[in-house]
């Protein structure tokens, strides 16, 4: 029989852990399907950025992607960036594994785009990389006199402003220079790993605020899914899930490792205390989430708030 060719797009350069996961996936899939499926990995945005790859997955001109999930066709997809869905890695595993409230919601929303969500690749908690440090950094809501670069999403802007930052939008490509020259005093939107890999020379402080989870989607186009036999679908799903699940363990390790590497590099790493962290989480859930009702739809916010209230009662 003719083999199925999978073009698999990724965002990171060769050698990056996420790209390595893609390469390992390729190897395992090709072995397990005994040549019925051939995978070609295109790292480093070679086939376009994640919005483009997502769009093409939806059209069926791309087969698979391990990418950020963009929201241009459905703002509700931003729900995965809602701040403080989890506050520690045990909660991350709960939140980002199949069957969870978030996973089921995202799976449903993504399937409306004719794309299948196979799993979440978790990169770690996002924190603040800063070039100057306000004294009251531990206080959830107080004004911090910091010009913070946020990704171009309502969720980040609203959350950062509720947390007491002034926000600025700078294209990611210009972020490094902007931090260096003072166009921005810091940024939200990246894990300790990303802060170490790309910004260690320019930031002076890294605040472990566990704001949100930086995670990417293992995605496959419906068109590809229809082409595959039931057996190969199962193989691909299982291998993707294996790496997705591994990524959560690796993320926790990497987070600690890169916090230490940042320290070694001379970056001051500030950890919020458990008590502070719970206050930040409470503030996000009670103050910020309701403000996002119009963006994410009232139904979504209401049901997610209900789910979290139930959880708080349980605890």
């Amino acid at each position: 029989a003719e083999s199925v060719r999978i073009n698999f797009a990724g965002m990171f350069s060769p050698g990056h852990p996420v790209t390595n996961a893609q390469m390992n996936f390729k190897k395992e899939v090709e072995e397990a399907t005994e040549g019925r499926v051939k995978v070609r990995v295109f790292p480093a945005n070679q086939l376009g950025d994640y919005t483009q790859v997502f769009e093409e997955l939806s059209r069926g001109t791309m087969d698979m992607g391990l990418i950020n999930i963009p929201s241009q066709f459905d703002p509700r997809l931003e729900v995965m960036y809602l701040h403080y869905l989890a506050t520690n890695y045990a909660e991350v595993r709960e939140t980002y594994s199949p069957g969870s409230y978030l996973f089921t919601t995202m799976e449903g929303l993504i399937s409306e785009q004719k794309i299948k969500l196979l799993g979440f690749e978790v990169d770690g908690f996002g924190g603040f990389g800063l070039t100057k440090l306000p004294e009251n950094i531990g206080n959830a809501g107080s004004s911090k006199n910091i010009l913070l670069r946020v990704p171009p999403m309502d969720i980040f802007k609203t959350a950062a402003e509720d947390q007491g930052f002034q926000t600025v939008s700078v294209p990611f490509a210009e972020l490094y220079t902007s931090l260096q020259t003072g166009v921005a005093d810091g940024w939200s939107g990246g894990s300790s790993t990303l802060n170490y890999l790309q910004f260690r020379d320019v930031i002076k402080y890294f605040v472990v605020s566990n704001n949100f989870i930086d995670a990417y989607g293992w995605l496959a186009s419906d068109k590809l899914w229809k082409k595959l036999s039931a057996k190969d679908r199962h193989i691909i799903q299982e291998i993707a899930l294996k790496y997705a699940s591994q990524s959560i363990d690796v993320a926790e390790e990497n987070d600690l490792k890169h916090q230490k590497l940042l320290k070694d590099k001379g970056v001051t790493v500030i950890k919020l205390s458990d008590e502070e962290l719970q206050l930040w989480a409470k503030q996000a859930r009670e103050e910020t989430w309701p403000k996002l009702r119009s963006r994410l739809t009232p139904e979504l916010i209401d049901s997610i708030q209900k789910a979290y209230q139930a959880k708080t009662v349980e605890n």
Binding site: V170, P171, E174, T177, T181, G182, V183
Partner: peptide, 9 residues
């Protein structure tokens, strides 16, 4: 650009 006032654009 270098003084941090503006981006290249």
């Amino acid at each position: 650009i270098y003084g941090g006032v503006v981006t290249p654009t």
